[in-house]
Write a protein that binds this DNA or RNA. Structure first.
Lengths: 225, 225
DNA sequence: AAACTATCTGAACGTCCGTATAAAAAGTCA
DNA sequence: TGACTTTTTATACGGACGTTCAGATAGTTT
């Protein structure tokens, strides 16, 4: 079941040679991803990233540029992969013919829950990083806009199912769906605390409850009649 | 309609005299509240807070202690007030007799949307700060636990309405409701961007959509039959 | 007025930050 | 092999950070 997530990255130079520093560069980006995910942009230091990547200080700047560059690169390098998983999930349900609100919600949520629950620590870190970034408005604008194109695709899909809905209603329910999705990753500890069970379950185990919640919510805001 | 929010704070010494430095202390806490809300714990510097409060550097430490103390104090000083508004809203609907999921959701969400939309910049800042804090798991544990008692009260209320629901289901839907609520404050810019309208509306204007979404979501996860 | 306490000032402390860079090392190509 | 490029090392820089504190000031009590 857990098949490897394809790496959409280009590790060759324009002339076809494998770049010598590419392995190091990835170690740096991976370390940055883990650090940013677990501590946030401001709290992380370049020295921390260097230590995590097991390289010296200068190497981080050499491969990652400034701290801000590094942050943007880390976020951008996986966007296409996640987007493609979502688009594929949407295409799959559309190919089946009749489509429902629940189908759209499912296609949007599942790939994210999936990568957030994988064995691969880097993808888990990326999922956590997204949750961190999206929940605060104050990151770099370029970062926020990374996820807009796919959001618009899903809004258009909802629009098709509920032609009477206003643009603001559609944007609102998608934003609430995204927030709910991210909170599963960001707040599992709180859920565990409030429910009394000490157990912190993987995000995917909340899948059906989350899909129910978002589907029910959207259908209540955008009634079909 | 917008009546002043009562100040639950104690500005007198034990002997009844008004503390001389109390006004300064509040200026410091107010400034810290605004700064933490708009930039987050790590990004804010003590010097920035001092400048915003129009006091010298040492005064911030004198009245606020360490940066971490200051942060906790800022969050803690308004918890009781917000909690009381929520409890009052819940008591009001319970007094009316029959109670629904929607009533419980409304009682939880409205006070927050209310303070987040008030003219008072300090309460708006506090609302924004809550959104920032709650969306990431990595703040000080004491902070996270500030909001648990009231959360448990509302969970108990839901439990009464849906006796068959498990503790984990209840904790999950409450957490998703909270996340949705906070995302309205934190992501209004994104909603505006995605809906095409340049306008950023006050949180309270999303009230009915938000209540619909959460009510529909909870009812889908916890069906009444 | 004198003694005392609370508050505030201004300056300093040691530490760590992000970034830059010269020189060494490693790899590539002629 | 020797010239050339890419990568890595080690170190340094200026600045900002959180915190501390001796001393000045203002308010209170005796």
């Amino acid at each position: 079941m857990p098949q490897p997530i394809p790496n959409t990255e280009n590790s060759r130079n324009t002339d076809g040679r494998v770049a010598r520093g590419e392995a190091t560069r990835e170690r740096v980006l991976d370390a940055a991803e883990r650090c940013f995910a677990s501590e946030g942009f401001e709290a992380v230091t370049i020295r921390q990233i260097a230590r995590a990547a097991e390289v010296t200080l200068g190497v981080v700047s050499f491969h990652g540029g400034s701290k801000e560059d590094l942050f943007k690169t880390v976020l951008a390098r996986r966007v296409a992969t996640l987007d493609n998983l979502r688009k594929a999930a949407l295409a799959a349900v559309r190919a089946r013919g009749e489509i429902t609100i629940r189908d759209v919600v499912e296609a949007y949520l599942t790939p994210y829950l999936d990568i957030a629950s994988r064995g691969d620590a880097q993808w888990r870190a990326y999922a956590q990083l997204i949750a961190r970034v999206a929940s605060n408005d104050d990151y770099f604008p370029e970062v926020r806009e990374l996820y807009d194109p796919t959001a618009r695709i899903f809004i258009a899909e909802l629009q098709r199912l509920r032609p009477g809905a206003s643009a603001e209603e559609l944007a609102t329910v998608l934003t609430l769906t995204v927030a709910s999705m991210l909170s599963i990753v960001a707040s599992r500890a709180r859920i565990a605390g409030l429910s009394g069970s000490g157990e912190i379950d993987p995000p995917i185990s909340y899948r059906s409850k989350l899909i129910d919640f978002c589907t029910g919510g959207i259908e209540m805001v955008l009634p079909s009649d």
